[in-house]
Design a protein around this nucleic acid. Sequence first.
DNA 1: TATTTCATTGAATATTTATTCAAATATATC
DNA 2: GATATATTTGAATAAATATTCAATGAAATA
Lengths: 191, 191
Amino acid sequence: METRKEQKERRRQEIIQAALELFVGRGYAATKITDIAKRANMSTGLMFHYFDSKEKLYEELIRMGLEGTAYPGEQKCEHAIDFFVNFTEALFAYMKEQPVVAKFFVLMAEAQRSEATPEHIREIAMKVNVIEQFVPIIEWGQNEGTIKEGSPLVISNAFWCSIQGIAERFATNQDIELPEAEWIVDIVRRK
Amino acid sequence: METRKEQKERRRQEIIQAALELFVGRGYAATKITDIAKRANMSTGLMFHYFDSKEKLYEELIRMGLEGTAYPGEQKCEHAIDFFVNFTEALFAYMKEQPVVAKFFVLMAEAQRSEATPEHIREIAMKVNVIEQFVPIIEWGQNEGTIKEGSPLVISNAFWCSIQGIAERFATNQDIELPEAEWIVDIVRRK
DNA sequence: TATTTCATTGAATATTTATTCAAATATATC
DNA sequence: GATATATTTGAATAAATATTCAATGAAATA
């Protein structure tokens, strides 16, 4: 038998999951509280028992997205390019296994990009800054000759934009077959 | 002196431009008619003199996006890979010169992807199907050995997701330096 | 079992946003 | 210049959506 505490936590999770799917599928602004309630099988009123407002619910999801975004350090790779291969393969495998991962990519991207995002929420979302995190790895790879010449920041940006584009497509259409990780790594690989 | 016809057309364009910028910057649902009116320097009432509704205005923009999406055929390239290089270089140059191009990428992507898009508008947006258009070129390149092995559709998808990701980033932040076209073409290039 | 506390509902209210419209102003036509 | 036609405004209305709340039922505690 479920305790009240457990039940409360489950309900919370049901709301969070429904909201994630809708925010990703329709965008935050186009998602109605009633839609979320319907998908979570509850009345609209009950939503407010768990979250003070639609915006607070959004904030909670963005916080979750931020916490879930723990990218590995330089690992134990012989070459920088191996880091990219391992990372990309792991990410794609993870997205296939847990489609929620791709959904969080889309959620965070919208929060970062949209001018309609409430400022305090955008600030939280902006703490995810993967592009800069990959710069030192690219510099390492350029020194050893496994990664292309060029501005590390611009290269990192190209890589991440591609990952982002792929995640966005996959998040809303899981029938799409993900590309080989190597193909995407070729963006940064020196020939 | 401006004739009435000219003035009407100018006003129309002012609305269209303001709407494009806002739809791209905030998303369709988060953009208020009053925002558009303000940006176009007119009263909200006047908007409805030019467009019957927010949705009709959206439809008009999506139609424009569809028309503007005329991709070249196989051109006169010696190798399929050259087609990709020329195409990508031309696209990036065009985006730098006319940032509106990147904005249309984002507009069309939202219309295609979002479950909140009115069905008849989504149908129009869906007519842009660049991924399939590039399949025969990839097949050609695979036969001559300049393009990677693998499902042409999946390769085309990988390429376009990257282009999409880059366009989305550039559309909202033109300070971002675009990557070298060659880097992105490396997604499809055979080593 | 009685009592208290928490979960839940859905209709009522508040708020936001799209749309209409009557009146005012400007431009064209005669 | 007089009349007609088109543009423009902004306040009024309508529609959509978020939020509140009083009432109900269910679970925990005594």
